[in-house]
Design a protein around this nucleic acid. Structure first.
Ligand SMILES: [Mn+2]
Ligand SMILES: [Mn+2]
Ligand SMILES: [Zn+2]
Ligand SMILES: [Zn+2]
Lengths: 137, 137
DNA sequence: ATATATATGAAAACCTTTCTCATTTACACC
DNA sequence: GGTGTAAATGAGAAAGGTTTTCATATATAT
């Protein structure tokens, strides 16, 4: 019952919010831009404004329901938050996104921040490359 | 003699290009946005268009003379290329940028790409935090 | 010196994201 | 179930960084 998730986050339960959540939960593209979500909703026959999609996604991010990736050069994609941190591999040919977790890297990052006297608040790591699928074509 | 660098890159030797190069070589802010470079040139009394600065920096990037960092949220900064790869720590309070190299992380990235079947072409890693200077204030 | 391909500056266009504001809606309360 | 009020919405304008357009100027080969 996702209405509860919204209430818990202090957000009123509105149709646009439920619909955005529904898209994120049912898509097979785990990582979607605001535009992607917007278009998916239009195709579903929903009437929604793009500004609302941006607002709702930003609110969801604030509520910890989704997380935002800032892909190279001002283009954000969103994904449902699953509680576990991970980083991303991006195919430069087809834009496929894969996920990974690496404890060695996570630990080294903390060590580097400490060495440099930084109180680490966050990090972003993207590996770019050509995915298996695109190599054979 | 930086004229040679330009010629080697197949770029005509023009005043705007020489001046942008000069700024990058003499600034004490190793990482500068296009706007930073533009303003520095205006203060020097140079007449140059912002579009030219963007163009020249992009050409320099193509020629391997500078590298571009895409900071979180559509704002690029440039630095003179020194041949050696490094990653960055960014202070979220004062925007200070520090550099680091970590071979363990570099190696793990290659291993992860290989595991996932990616032919790695590049990567980007930013550690965000509060710098030493900003912690005591 | 001349010709020609290339570079420049100013302004307009671009693209993603945010803001404004008039209108609609959710929900607490009676 | 109505009502009031604060919050949410949609349309379009605005923002902010970057790129494009196009007429003019410049570098370089001959
Ligand atoms: Mn992900
Ligand atoms: Mn650097
Ligand atoms: Zn691919
Ligand atoms: Zn700082």
């Amino acid at each position: 019952m996702e209405s509860q998730d919204l209430r818990k986050a202090g957000l009123k339960v509105t149709l646009p919010r439920l619909k955005v959540l529904e898209i994120l939960e049912t898509t097979d593209h785990r990582h979607m831009s605001a535009e992607d979500v917007y278009k998916a909703l239009l195709e579903m026959g929903e009437e929604i404004g793009l500004a609302t999609v941006y607002r709702v996604l930003t609110q969801f991010e604030g509520a910890g329901l989704v997380s935002r990736l800032s892909i190279d050069g001002g283009h954000a994609v969103f994904e449902l938050e699953d509680g576990s941190h991970h980083d991303h591999l991006l195919c430069v040919r087809c834009n496929r996104i894969e996920e990974f977790v690496d404890d060695v890297i996570e630990k080294r990052q903390r060590a580097i921040a400490a060495e440099k006297g930084f109180e680490m608040t966050d990090h972003s790591l993207y590996i770019y490359g050509i995915c298996r699928h695109c190599q054979s074509s």
